[in-house]
């Protein structure tokens, strides 16, 4: 019972801090909007994919990108907690490290879901009409973000400096994004490139979101969700384990 209230406490703290850092919310929305309207508008005017306008095609991919960047970046806050010595205050509490990990992860999932929701609101611009699909959509986002936030937390728990964190995560973020099919269809890729994208968990997130929003899918929603669940479970287990080993 006290573990549960501790988990809620950590989650609540992350949420309050998130709401108080307005510039952080604003800045992290700017990048997906630029991708959508500038990149999408520009490239879209030069080519057309089979049945969709290019902007519409990348729209689900950009939602996933926003989730990806926000989630991974969230791990940096672990480093700030170390720097501010706030982490010591959390670690010296009777809570288990697993609870601390889940509290933190839940905080990150909340942040990313809120930002994704802002982008989901743009749906009508791209011809997406809301309906029951929103429920499975949020379930898919939740599972995928849980895995991605955990990656961020793992890196954050292992590193000491925000600069190092930035360097490592940019090495992870961009391959995960570019090799996910967010910006191009996977069907006609050369086989080496397709092989790499198939190993990227984000690919299945993009495919699932695209399938729910636009009704087109490469792998089928069922397979997407299975892969995402497996991904999230594995990373969460690793994350909880690294937190238990984390030094302050």
């Amino acid at each position: 019972m006290s573990e549960l209230s501790g988990l809620l406490a950590i989650w609540e703290r992350e949420f309050r801090v998130f709401l108080r850092e307005k510039s952080r919310i604003f800045a992290s929305l700017l990048s997906p909007l630029m991708w959508l309207f500038i990149f999408g508008g520009g490239v879209g005017s030069a080519l057309s994919t089979s049945s969709f306008n290019y902007q519409t095609f990348i729209y689900p991919g950009i939602i996933v990108m926003s989730c990806l960047f926000t989630s991974i970046f969230y791990g940096a806050y672990v480093i700030w907690d170390k720097r501010l010595d706030f982490l010591k205050e959390v670690i010296v509490s009777p809570l288990s490290r697993t609870t601390i990990f889940f509290g933190k992860a839940l905080g990150g999932v909340t942040d990313a879901i809120i930002q994704a929701s802002v982008l989901v609101l743009l749906g009508p611009i791209f011809g997406v009409h809301y309906g029951w699909f929103l429920i499975p959509l949020y379930a898919v986002l939740f599972i995928m973000i849980t895995g991605l936030v955990s990656i961020g937390l793992i890196i954050g728990s292992l590193m000491e400096s925000p600069e190092g964190f930035g360097l490592i995560t940019s090495l992870i973020n961009f391959p995960l994004f570019f090799l996910s099919g967010a910006l191009f269809p996977l069907d006609n890729l050369p086989s080496w490139l397709k092989g790499i994208t198939l190993m990227n968990p984000v690919t299945y997130g993009v495919d699932a979101v695209r399938s729910l929003m636009l009704g087109t899918s490469t792998f089928g929603l069922f397979k997407d969700v299975l892969v995402l669940i497996a991904f999230a479970v594995i990373i969460v287990v690793i994350g909880a384990w690294t937190f238990s080993k984390m030094k302050v």
Binding site: G6, A9, R13, R16, R20, E21, F86, K88, S93
Partner: peptide, 19 residues
């Protein structure tokens, strides 16, 4: 080791919940 973006009250509340 308190959180600067929380108020004094919120820091205490967080602590009592964790403990």
């Amino acid at each position: 080791s308190s959180d600067e973006l929380l108020t004094g009250y919120e820091n205490l509340k967080l602590h009592t919940m964790m403990f």
